[in-house]
Structure formats: structure tokens, C-alpha cells
Computed example of a mutant assay.
Amino acid sequence: MKKIGIIALALFMQHISAQNNRFVYQVTMKPDAENKTDIKTENAYLDISAEKSIFYSENRYKRDSILQKAFQGGGGRGSVSREQMEGVRTNINYSVEKDKSSQKTTFKDRIGRDIYSYEEDRPLNWKMSSETTKIGDYKVQKATTDFAGRKWTAWFTTDLPYQDGPYKFGGLPGLIVKVEDDKGEYSFDLMKNYKIGEIATLNQFGNTLKVKRADYLKQQEKYKTDPMSFMQSGGGGGFAGTVRVGGRGGGNQNPADMRKRMEERVKEEIKKNSNPIELQ
């Protein structure tokens, strides 16, 4: 009887873990306000369990895995090639976690060496439409909302019984299959979904600072004007002294030159991300 009980428990646990789902979205972005022809596309995951969901970039997850392996393999001071890091570049450095019991949405984003975490304080007020269509295999219904300075149109399906969606979107009677802003600058399109054993745990290199949304926005503005003040000496955005990102040319490089090059690179990145998803 004891053996049967253990088998039953194992099967039950297997059933529970199989309830975790991963929804893969293609995210299309025009992040450069000066160059709207520069269109970025990458995949992001929405992992959903019974307790919560988390939305994050596929490349960010791959990048963190590379850095973690380098850190562990190098006894706490590993190195990775610049080519490795170029292959996992992402425009989605944030993650969004939704807690089902508390109905709270937590946004996390890296600024320099630290992760800033805040609880979203603006509700999504959806206007439901009777309009329906079909996207892929799903019958979908239209809903619209104004959020963070953009007008959004979402298409959700009750075929997938999750009141969830990509980014901060959710709260509709089914899963959001597609959501885009009226300027065509940001869109999220469901590509596929499958069962997973457990939802991802993201590496949080550096400190995690819990702040109000207004404080996060202030820090973001400071970072745009003086990014190097957010970096530790030697740079690395949270990996300084732990994982070194190397390139060609060997190790005898002037620290001042390295810092100058890094500052130029960071400012160029900021310039190319002048059209954020949230305008307000």
C-alpha cells in the first residue's frame, strides 16, 4: 500500500508540474524615435503556473545562463567573449511578474549595476468590443485600452483559460493572443505554446532595489544623462569583478580608454532606445 501511495503521489506531482505553460510571443519594436525603419524583432516567453506568471526575453534568459556558467566555471571570476554576448543581445531587459492571489504586477529592470523593482500602480481599463476574428487556430475577441501614453488593441481567446498576456497586459476573460499600439511601434504576437516542468527563475545579478514607479522613472532619467555613475569602476553592469566580457586585442588595455569606449557604447544604446514602450 505504501508503494502505491508513493506512485500516486508521484503521478499527482507530475500532473501538477505539467500545468505550467510557456507561451512564446514574437515581439516587434521600433525603439529608435529618430529611425522608425529600424525594426527589432525577438522572442519573449510568458511562463504561467497556478500561482503566478513571468514575462521575459528569450535572449535575456540565454545571456544570463552564459554569464552564470562563466561565473561558476571561473571560480567566481569567469570571462565570456564579446561574440557570445552579441549573439544574445536583447531590447527586452525587463521582466514582468504577475501574482495571481494578490493580483499584483511587479516590473523589474536593470539600470546600470542594479535591478530596480516596482509594483505597477496603474490599472488596465479595458473596453470590450463584440468584434471577433480568427488568429491562427484561435477565435479571438477585441478589447482596447489606453495605457502609459499609448492606445492598445488586444485580441484575446477564451480557448486558453488564462486571464493573462504579454508584458503588463492581462485581466481579460482569456489569454491575449495579440496586442499592438495604434502607431504600429510595438506588437506582441503569440507564436506557440507548450507545457514546461517549472517556470523560469531569472538570475538577478547585482542588488535588487524595491522602489516606487516614480523613483524608477527618476533613476532612468539620471541614467540617460550620466550612465557611468550607475556603473562600478571597470563597468559590467552588475558583473564587475565577477564576469569579464572580453573581445579581440588581449588584456593590456588602458582602463581610462576602456571606460571611455564603454561610455560611448552605453550612450549609443540609450540613443537607439529613445522610443520606449511606455511614453508616460
Results as ranks from 00 to 15, higher is better:
Gln26Glu: 07
Ile7Ala: 12
Thr242Phe: 09
Asp164Gln: 01
Gly136Ala: 02
Lys100Tyr: 10
Asp121Asn: 15
Gly249Cys: 08
Pro227Cys: 12
Gln103His: 15
Phe55Glu: 00
Lys183Tyr: 14
Val96Pro: 03
Gln232Met: 12
Thr28His: 01
Tyr56Phe: 10
Tyr194Ile: 00
Leu175Tyr: 05
Gly184Ile: 06
Ala154Cys: 08
Ile92Asn: 02
Gly246Ser: 13
Ser53Leu: 10
Gln232Glu: 14
Lys183Glu: 14
Arg63Phe: 00
Glu34Asp: 15
Thr41Leu: 01
Gln232Thr: 10
Gly246Ala: 09
Lys2Gly: 14
Met1Ser: 15
Pro255Phe: 09
Ile135Asn: 02
Lys260Arg: 11
Asn91Cys: 01
Thr144Gly: 01
Glu58Ile: 09
Ile16Thr: 14
Lys222Thr: 07
Gly238Phe: 03
Ser274Val: 00
Glu180His: 15
Gly251Asp: 14
Glu97Pro: 02
Phe230Ala: 06
Asp99Trp: 10
Ser79Cys: 05
Gly73Thr: 07
Asp47Pro: 13
Pro255Cys: 05
Phe188Lys: 03
Ile199Asp: 00
Arg265Glu: 13
Ile199Ser: 03
Gly197Cys: 01
Ser233Asn: 13
Arg122Gly: 00
Tyr162Phe: 11
Leu172Ser: 07
Arg110Phe: 01
Trp152Asp: 08
Glu198Leu: 11
Asn252Asp: 13
Val88Gln: 05
Arg259Val: 07
Asp137His: 15
Pro31His: 13
Leu217His: 14
Glu180Ser: 15
Arg150Lys: 14
Pro255Leu: 11
Thr157Ile: 09
Asp164Ile: 00
Tyr138Trp: 12
Gly234Val: 12
Pro31Thr: 04
Phe23Leu: 10
Lys108Pro: 00
Ile199Thr: 12
Val88Lys: 03
Gln26Gly: 03
Asn254Met: 08
Arg259Ser: 15
Trp155Ser: 05
Met29Phe: 00
Ala50Lys: 12
Asn59Ile: 02
Tyr118Lys: 13
Asp189Met: 06
Phe169Cys: 01
Ser95Met: 00
Gly241Leu: 12
Asn91Ser: 02
Thr157Asn: 08
Glu278Cys: 06
Lys108Ser: 14
Gly235Pro: 09
Val243Gly: 06
Asn43Leu: 13
Lys178Pro: 00
Met29Ile: 08
Ser101Arg: 13
Leu209His: 08
Tyr56Gln: 04
Val179Lys: 11
Lys2Trp: 07
Tyr186Met: 04
Phe71Ile: 06
Tyr56Val: 00
Gly112Gln: 00
Gly206His: 02
Thr225Gly: 07
Arg82Ala: 15
Phe169His: 01
Lys192Pro: 02
Ala143Met: 06
Ala44His: 03
Lys151Ser: 14
Asp226Ser: 10
Asn193Leu: 01
Ser81Thr: 15
Gly237Tyr: 01
Lys218Pro: 02
Leu46Phe: 10
Phe205Ser: 05
Met13Lys: 07
Thr37Lys: 12
Ser79Gly: 05
Asn21Tyr: 15
Tyr45Asp: 04
Glu131His: 04
Phe71Gln: 05
Tyr61His: 08
Lys218Val: 13
Asp114Arg: 04
Asp182Pro: 14
Met228Leu: 09
Ser81Ile: 09
Asp226Ile: 06
Glu42Ser: 03
Asn93Phe: 01
Gln84Ser: 14
Glu185Ala: 13
Phe12Arg: 02
Asn35Gly: 11
Lys134Met: 10
Gly238Glu: 09
Val243Leu: 03
Lys40Val: 07
Ser65Trp: 05
Trp126Gly: 09
